[in-house]
Design a binder for these strands. Structure first.
Lengths: 214, 214
DNA sequence: AGCCAAACGGACGGGGGCGTCCGTTACGGT
DNA sequence: ACCGTAACGGACGCCCCCGTCCGTTTGGCT
């Protein structure tokens, strides 16, 4: 175990690093991972070189930028597993993950994308999926989660959820909530006979402008 | 009405135009709209200039490339409207559109993206949405489509469906079918009490490699 | 106050994609 | 067979973006 002696870090460096991370969260959260590094640098009030000194590559910046959201995801899974009602835990998990993905546009991409190896997302993912598998098993036992469900279905829906992210922020979270509600409806074994579950408000969606129009 | 006298079109030009469209369908279908024009040109065995002479801009090429799929979509809507069972028509519509979107990777983007104005997608869209609204009204009257449903929900799901397209072709159509099934499940008012609807096979999804890794 | 190293940032090189120019090719009508 | 013209395609300019280099600034310790 390497004991880091508190190598004197210059204050401006530490400040800039923090400002860069804030800027990255804002920019990538609003414009997605395709936002130029220069935009982050401008937003942080530093030069490109400074940005690259702190984070040698764009992916390195991604990893640090979304560390917090990753922790939030872990927490959501943990909470879902410890919920005394598995089906309620399962539903809450879906809602929380969708909310997280909807609030920063880049995070869903970072989360659902297998990066070359920079991040240890892979390991993460394996453990997480295992946990969800267990949760699903329990929720199926109560008869509330439909029997045909497999964890890949959640992955499927989360990948689909990414399709909502090319949408203005305001509509995005509303759309995301409605999508989550439909997802839960689709996964549930048998909606209350007669009265269907009420849904959150429907978003007024407008089409994307524009995927390849420089 | 301008009567086009059959301006003598040289045979090689007509051949090349056809080859370019075939190439465009193949390339954009497999790699998405972000595929370089040069790739289409190479695949068609022509130079870039020839491509641009036939289609002055990338969007113009899009418009022609997906004309056939657009007609297929119109046909699907028409069929759905004339189905004697509105709910069956509605479900078939969803399945057919998803199938179309899954089979060529670029089409979904072209379909769900509001292009600056090149295509008359906007008009299309308005008429189509109106038709679907009517269909939904009928399906709700039979009590099989859930009361809360609004057409924007279909748009929502179709936008989400785009998220599945960064997936290898084989998995893509399987994933798409399963997604369509879940969508229908979510939209249906009350699945057969007791026995949930069986689903198509679940795809084995692998994560995307990679959105911004040149 | 003075010094030194760490940190900064403007400018640069490399790569890729879109759309265009102009010299060359080859179709097709005579 | 010939010739005019439409069509072709390699090469070019332009722009955007990633990542790097080097001269300059500035924090912090003595």
């Amino acid at each position: 175990m390497t004991s880091h002696l508190p190598q004197p870090v210059r204050s401006d460096a530490r400040d800039n690093r923090a400002r860069i991370l804030d800027a990255a969260r804002a920019v990538f959260g609003e414009e997605g991972l395709s936002a130029p590094m220069r935009e982050v640098a401008r937003h942080a009030g530093v030069g490109p070189a400074t940005l690259y000194r702190h984070f040698p590559t764009k992916q390195a910046l991604f990893a640090e930028t979304f560390a917090e959201q990753r922790r939030a995801c872990h927490a959501a899974v943990r909470d879902a597993l410890t919920d005394s009602n598995p089906w309620h835990g399962f539903r809450s998990l879906i809602e929380r993950i969708c909310e997280l993905h909807a609030h920063s546009r880049g995070f869903a991409d970072a989360f659902m994308t297998a990066f070359p190896e920079a991040m240890d997302f892979a390991a993460d993912r394996e453990r997480t999926l295992h946990a969800v598998r267990e949760l699903a098993r329990r929720a199926q036992k109560t008869g509330q989660l439909r029997p045909g469900f497999v964890v890949d279905d959640l992955v499927l829906m989360l990948m689909a959820h990414r399709g909502l992210q090319d949408t203005p922020r305001a509509a995005r979270v509303t759309a995301s909530r409605r999508f989550a509600a439909y997802m839960i409806e689709a996964f549930s074994a048998a909606p209350a006979t007669g009265a269907p579950t009420p849904l959150p408000p429907a978003p007024r969606l407008q089409l994307t402008h524009s995927p390849s129009t420089p």
